[in-house]
Design a protein around this nucleic acid. Structure first.
Length: 1124
RNA sequence: GCCCGGGUGGAGGAACUGGUAGACUCGGGGGAUUUAAGAUCCUCUGCUUUAGAGCGUGUGGGUUCGAAUCCCACCCCGGGCACCA
């Protein structure tokens, strides 16, 4: 017998398989049997393949081979996520490829792709232009890390302690236009479609959190102004007082106490500007208190009006202003000749008062260039505002109202706490704050102080402000806002714990129920108002379903002793167990709650207090039954109150320590201990929250029963939130997900296929000029400037194709863009008409089984899902999710449990292992080491197991010298082999390779008993093993088989009858403890089995002198005799 | 802090939907073979214990005839998010 020699076998078969094209993908797969198996493609680093890669490659390969043997048509490709400059990848890729081949992986190399090649990235660029045309790719302002020294944008990783890694200059935040993919447009779909995916639950959860959808409400807090303001609003072309946002704006302004005039300008559909100006002059009085608002054409009317006004107005808002007739859509309006388009800007500015220009973002009628000309001519203050429709033509334009009407709007996820708002806080870097500083008319009294704070806050890093001991902020003196429900005036703060980028950049602060607001309120001595009572739920039912809580006239007291700060706890014996609670009780008729508390404390503890002090708060108990005799026993909720009482307030009372025939006593306890005991007592858990709130000085953030909230008191948080939102605000949803910034100032990557015309407007590079190649005349070493900016070739190329004055985009795309669609290329990798042909996509997509590291759980997988949806919407593909099933492989750690790294010298090179022990052993070792998705520590000793196993199989076959045939099913009598087929088939389907392998080992152990091995079972066994150890099984099949490759054989099947053994072992228990084992026939009757169980010696012993009251019988498992 | 995973012999890990805990593998002990070592084969291997048994799945409670598995509270480890209102 020849020894097992992996070296000889493995290279031999790898060559043969290649010669035979064994793994060619079928061109016309059967639609029902087509399977697309894909492992995430690697980045071909210079250091070569790592043992960590091997597990996922081996797992996908086993799975692909398994499917092929099951008769599936399988697409199993591989490629390279090559972000290096081309020269270097051309050296590293062959090394990687050799390493992969040495593992015996069954890729179809005819479909290899490489993202750094123009043949690939032209389709990445096509993807970009497709998204651009769909409005999903756009350039918009974003805050970037700017290094003034290098005059360049820095990635987060290049900023070290707030300084530039290259020149140590302090890095600034700067607003710059950046390219984005608008992934947020798909936020809802990306979230909702997760439910149907066969993905690891943890990964789905990670994506859900990343998307971070939160339902809540928006509330508006009008800024208090002592004088009634007078607005004159001039509408635009084809508009009028009843059109667009005008009715809504009028309502909103009037509701906050203003006077509003919206004159109906003559001939709105065919206007004459001079006529409209004259109409306003004759019919509307413009006074020094007037706030003049013009929208669109109304801004022209306003300007002409201001030109020859003989006094000034208070403020002028120009919404979407312009100064010439060169519209973005190229059309004419018809009113162009009705005025001269000359503007006396000096007089306009003089008479306009504060001149505020509001420029709607993404305007379709007025181009950015036209706005720029208006800006140059008019001056004044300019702001960009987010609008609901381009040119601010929607019926509701909240941004307009919040600016013109001067209100602060906030987003909250807890509308139920609206009545607990005691102040507002606004982020420092908001236009609202900037305006307050800039315009004294807005009434801010401490402008200098606020300005200083804002500057400090901007200079501070995020971490600095977060880690600050106290939350900082400055009160806006002279500014108050009106609470939308109570009408009370509230102070407003600028505070850096509020983020400008989330929600509206302002918050309603509820110190009693929010940690951060609580901290801030403590630091700035602001009131804290409890509006939600925590609920102890004694019910099995969901308390939030209960209606109408009872506002109980009852109270408990937290009695503190000044000398040692201990608090008094009442200990009640209930059902023989000590139950801890606070002393207190219910009010009698005619008694106030405070009086009742004083009386109860006296009765129960012996302390007589003259008064109770500060109320700690309310709490609620949800009862499943009534505590009172005779009252209704329906489940209900009672809300009680707690007060702080100090023994200093007591008369010379004596503590009563025992009462109620020894069932009640009192004890002074350390607060911590008291909280612990109360919390552990089943009945009064909620009282601990109250004590804790007092002791720890912390807010209670849980939902509960709303209190101190007018008509809403007594509602559960859920219901109160709904009703309060309805009454005072609007429903709103926010997301954590941000748009995907794709521009990179790097050399490697696909150039963004955009060119700018001489006016600076972007245009996509037409398809015939793709690939829009990366220039070759620049150095890619980092210097500061984007490398492409220095390419003469790129600039010349652009002017040559598009004309003089045209310039190229000089950024490249994030490499995640390449990898977010690559799986669409494999089905048709050589197509030069499109990224893939329709038929090929239909044949194979989406990917049936995708395998990769959990580190890609969010970005890559989310981006790929987004791109798939975007392409589906543009009609390129007809499926909306890229990966039907997903599995993660775990990490392979070094023997010491740390990450393998060159510096630690603990890296295991897969080449060495293949060389020493063979690819089959390495594959099986990694798959056997534990569950596929879990990490494991490399263990040199344990590798011996799989190696020995293969050797044992080798010997077993050689010793038995079988004549192998391609039988489908094991012999009927070989129960163990039917069980093995079942287990290996099921486990491999589920990616449970470790248990599949252990089943194979068990089968080998069984066959090691010479009585039980047959030619047919060996044939079945080798085919089950083939996906795991492809080389060794191929060699054995070659030697003893009927000819052909083992990998072309059919996967064995099992018979469900033959899986069941003739006889089965059953456990016999007495009172749940194992006392014996019996072997019973598979068809035996229950009664007979019980008799047999009783007859067992040890069981009989244990049953002696006992009466069996119950017998538990679980077929095929156990018999349990329960005695008295 | 919040959200996910996870905690089982000396080690990796198994255990269906609540039903004999520790499959399979490594390591270790003993034996056979060998001049010897290695390899191979046989055999034992959760802990305590004299038998019989008792104790055992991070800790403490609970539900159940029966809990690694379900419930409550807590501890520890890994991952993700984080002034996200």
């Amino acid at each position: 017998m020849e020894e097992y020699n992996h070296k000889k076998i493995e290279s031999k078969w790898q060559e043969k398989w290649q010669e035979l094209d064994l793994y060619e993908t079928p061109d016309n797969p059967d639609p029902d049997d087509a399977r697309y198996v894909l492992g995430m493609f690697p980045y071909p680093s210079g250091s070569g393949l790592h043992v960590g890669h091997v597990e996922s490659f081996a797992g996908t390969d086993v799975y692909a081979r398994f499917l092929r043997m099951q008769g599936k048509d399988v697409l199993f490709p591989m490629g390279w996520d090559a972000l290096h400059p081309r020269e270097r990848t051309e050296e590293t890729i062959p090394v990687f490829k050799d390493q992969l081949n040495s593992l015996g992986l069954s890729y179809d190399w005819d479909r290899e792709i490489n993202t750094s090649k123009p043949e690939y990235y032209q389709w990445t660029q096509k993807l970009f232009t497709t998204l651009f045309e769909e409005g999903l790719a756009e350039k918009k302002p974003d805050t970037v890390n700017w290094c003034p020294g290098c005059q360049t944008v820095l990635a987060n990783a290049q900023v070290i302690d707030g300084e530039c890694e290259r020149c140590d200059t302090e890095v600034e935040d700067k607003q710059m236009d950046q390219w984005f993919f608008n992934i947020t447009e798909y936020a809802d779909e990306l979230l909702e479609d997760l439910d149907d995916l066969d993905w690891p639950e943890s990964t789905k959860e990670l994506q859900r959190n990343w998307i971070g959808r939160k339902q809540g409400a928006r509330f508006s807090f009008p800024v208090h102004d002592t004088t009634t303001r007078r607005f004159v609003v001039l509408h635009g072309y084809k508009s009028g007082p009843k059109k667009h946002f005008h009715p809504w704006l009028k309502d909103k302004l009037e509701a906050t106490g203003n006077e509003v005039i919206v004159p109906e300008l003559p001939n709105p559909d065919n206007p004459d500007i001079e006529e409209q100006v004259a109409y306003v002059k004759d019919n509307v009085e413009l006074t020094e208190d007037t706030i003049l608002v013009g929208h669109s054409l109304g801004t022209i009317v306003a300007m002409k009006l201001l030109e020859d006004l003989d006094q000034r107005v208070k403020t002028t808002f120009l919404v979407a202003p312009y100064v010439d007739t060169d519209f973005a859509d190229g059309k004419t309006r018809g009113y162009e000749d009705t005025t001269d388009w000359e503007f006396d800007t000096e007089t306009i500015r003089e008479n306009a008062g504060q001149l505020i220009n509001l420029q709607p973002a993404d305007d379709t009628s007025i181009s950015d260039q036209q706005y720029q000309r208006a800006k140059d001519k008019l001056g004044g203050h300019w702001e960009t505002i987010d609008v609901n429709k381009p040119h601010a033509k929607a019926e509701i334009e909240p941004a307009l109202f919040s600016r013109i009407g001067n209100e602060v709007s906030v987003f909250t996820t807890r509308p139920d706490t609206l009545f607990g708002v005691t102040y507002l806080a606004v982020a420092p870097d908001t236009t609202w704050i900037e305006n307050l500083i800039e315009f004294p008319e807005l009434g801010l009294k401490n402008r200098e102080e606020v300005q200083n704070y804002v500057q400090e806050a901007k200079a501070k890093s995020k971490d600095e402000s977060r880690e600050a001991e106290e939350k900082t902020g400055v009160r806006l003196e002279g500014i108050t806002v009106k609470h939308p429900a109570t009408g009370k005036q509230l102070p407003v703060y600028v505070a850096d714990y509020v983020l400008s980028g989330y929600g509206t950049g302002a918050i309603m602060a509820v110190p009693a129920h929010d940690e951060r607001d609580f901290e801030f309120a403590k630091a700035h001595d602001l009131p804290i108002k409890q509006v939600v009572a925590p609920v102890e739920n004694e019910l099995d039912a969901d308390y939030t379903k209960l209606e109408d809580p009872i506002m109980e006239r009852a109270a408990n007291g937290v009695i503190t002793r000044k000398k040692d700060n201990k608090i008094l706890v009442q200990i009640l014996k209930m059902d023989g167990e000590d139950t801890y609670k606070l002393p207190g009780g219910r009010a009698d008729d005619g008694e106030t709650i405070k009086e009742a508390l004083i009386r109860e404390l006296d009765e129960e503890t012996g302390f007589r207090f003259n008064q109770v002090r500060e109320q700690l708060g309310s709490f609620a108990v949800a009862y499943s039954r009534s505590l009172e005799k005779g009252s209704n026993s329906e489940p209900h909720i009672r809300v009680k109150r707690a007060f702080l009482v100090s023994t200093e307030d007591a008369d010379d009372g004596q503590l009563v320590s025992e009462d109620y025939e020894g069932n009640l006593r009192h004890e002074w306890m350390e607060p911590e201990e008291a909280i612990k005991n109360i919390r552990n007592s089943q009945h009064f858990h909620n009282e601990a929250d109250i004590v804790e709130t007092f002791i720890n000085d912390s807010p209670s953030t849980d939902e509960g029963i709303v209190v101190h909230a007018d008509d809403f008191s007594g509602l559960t948080s859920d219901k109160a939130a709904e009703k309060i939102t309805e009454a005072f605000g609007e429903k709103e949803t926010t997301y954590n997900l941000q748009d995907w910034s794709i521009g990179r100032q790097r050399f490697w990557g696909a150039p963004i296929p955009i060119v700018y015309d001489p006016q600076g407007d972007p245009h996509p590079v037409p398809e015939e000029h793709l690939p829009w190649t990366l220039p070759e005349d620049v150095d890619f070493e980092p210097t500061g400037e984007p490398p492409l900016a220095k390419s003469e070739e790129l600039f010349e190329r652009t002017e040559e194709i598009f004309g003089e004055g045209w310039t190229p985009e000089i950024e490249t795309m994030d490499c995640f863009v390449d990898s977010s669609w690559y799986f669409l290329r494999y089905p048709d990798p050589h197509n030069d008409e499109n990224f893939a042909g329709k038929d090929a996509l239909e044949n194979w997509c989406p990917v049936d089984m995708y395998v990769g590291g959990a580190e890609h759980a969010v970005l890559h997988l989310l981006y790929a899902r987004f791109i798939t949806k975007a392409l589906a919407d543009s009609g390129e593909i007809d499926f909306r999710e890229p990966f039907s099933s997903l599995r993660h492989q775990g990490m392979v750690l070094a023997e010491d449990g740390t990450k393998m790294s060159k510096s630690k010298g603990n890296v295991v090179n897969p080449n060495d292992v293949v060389d020493r022990l063979g690819a089959d052993t390495l594959r099986m070792y990694e798959l056997f080491a534990g569950p596929f998705s879990e990490s494991f520590d490399w263990d040199t000793d344990s590798i011996a197991g799989p190696r020995r196993f293969i050797e044992r199989v080798w010997r077993l076959v050689h010793e038995h010298k079988p004549e192998l045939t391609s039988v489908q099913e094991p012999p009927e009598s070989a129960t163990y082999m039917h069980q093995t087929v079942k287990k290996v088939t099921e486990d491999t389907t589920e990616f449970n390779f470790n248990t599949a392998i252990s089943a194979l080992m068990e089968a080998r152990n069984t066959m090691h008993d010479k009585e039980r091995v047959t030619d047919d079972s060996l044939s079945v066994f080798l085919r089950l093993l083939a996906p795991f150890a492809p080389h060794a099984t191929e060699e054995l099949w070659h030697e003893f088989g009927p000819g052909g490759s083992v990998h072309k054989q059919d996967w064995p099947e099992f018979s469900p009858q033959a899986v069941e053994a003739e006889s089965v072992e059953m456990a016999v228990q007495v009172d749940g403890t194992l006392r014996g084992q019996i072997t019973v026939d598979k068809n035996a009757e229950k009664a007979d089995i019980i008799e047999q169980a009783k007859a067992d010696d040890n069981v009989a012993n244990n049953l002696e002198n006992k009466t069996v009251t119950r017998t538990i019988f679980v077929s095929g498992e156990l018999v349990n005799f329960v005695t008295e």
